[in-house]
């Protein structure tokens, strides 16, 4: 029984291969029409023809003697990746593969032989598999984009700026989590070493909420900076945040906290022995007190 079935399946498969070869032009044309209509005109027709032509050849090759589908899979992966980058929807991407099923079905219907119908079942299974593969590649490409963006965001969002000779500041914007605090901490400490700064200001004006975990992260950073011989001031504590911190019972110990970045800078300047003297007029002069 099994042998008979496989013989039938083989016959159907051969018939499909023949149909694909004999009706290459009409099938291809119909496929191009379906694939083209799905992508809402935001794909270059010329490049689509090229891609589909390549896919068609690779598909026929995979049915051939060698049954080598690595070319086909490579092409499909490339197609899904580029579509994922260009912002196509999953449907628009998958329809390119599934369109071939519809295109061939019209030919099979005209042929009408049992072999062709049986073969079409096999063919549609192959196409389904390829469709799934396309979706997988598409999802993987999207995932890659998200990871890349997260990394970029992490780097963008943690600048360490120099406010004065020996004073650096980290303006934190956005929610703090462990991974981000780690990056901020490393970057700040490295900057302290590189610039030989003894004062650092961590400004949390842009941090929407402070909970015990965020406070823990901040404290760790301050202690680490202290271990290296630098003093940290935490600034930009808004009234609500001050309230939350007290309500949660978080102890900042002897860590200096200031309401605004300006206060923190003034504190750091005073600590490093720099004094501001206001002259008549609006000009501000600075002099360093010799110790």
């Amino acid at each position: 029984m099994g042998v008979t079935l496989s013989v039938h399946a083989d016959a159907g498969r051969r018939r499909i291969e023949e149909l694909l070869q004999e009706n290459e032009e009409p099938v291809f044309k119909r496929w191009l029409e379906i694939a083209g209509s799905s992508s809402n005109g935001h794909v270059d027709r010329g490049s689509l023809v090229g891609q589909l032509r390549e896919l068609y050849q690779a598909l026929r090759q995979s049915f051939g003697e060698s049954s080598d589908s690595s070319d086909l899979r490579g092409l499909l992966a490339e197609l899904s990746r580029s579509r994922a980058r260009q912002g196509f929807t999953p449907t628009e991407t998958a329809i390119v593969v599934f369109g071939l099923k519809e295109a061939l079905y019209e030919i099979v219907e005209n042929d009408g032989s049992p072999e062709a119908l049986r073969g079409f079942v096999w063919f549609s299974r192959v196409i389904d598999e390829l469709g799934l593969f396309t979706m997988e590649s598409y999802a993987a490409a999207r995932e890659r984009i998200i990871i890349d963006q997260a990394e970029q965001l992490l780097e963008l969002s943690t600048p360490v700026v120099k406010l004065w000779e020996g004073i650096v500041a980290v303006p934190l914007v956005g929610t703090l989590d462990s991974a981000r605090t780690q990056v901020v901490m490393e970057k700040l400490l490295q900057t302290l070493v590189d610039t030989g700064s003894e004062h650092a200001v961590i400004d949390i004006t842009g941090v929407p909420a402070v909970d015990t975990q965020v406070a823990q992260h901040l404290l760790k950073t301050v202690v680490a900076a202290r271990l290296m011989g630098a003093e940290c001031v935490i600034s930009g504590i808004r009234p609500q945040i001050a309230h939350t911190i007290v309500t949660l019972g978080i102890e900042f110990g002897d860590i200096v906290t200031k309401a605004s970045l300006a206060d923190a800078l003034a504190h750091a300047l005073r600590q490093s022995g720099i004094e501001f003297v206001k002259h008549r007029g609006t000009r501000i002069a600075v002099r360093t007190v010799e110790e």
Partner: peptide
């Protein structure tokens, strides 16, 4: 006075709970 502590060392000490 302890001088020249590397950032990685400082982070490790904090994680270990040693504040010296």
């Amino acid at each position: 006075v302890v001088v020249g502590m590397r950032p990685a060392v400082a982070i490790t000490l904090v994680e270990l709970g040693l504040s010296l």
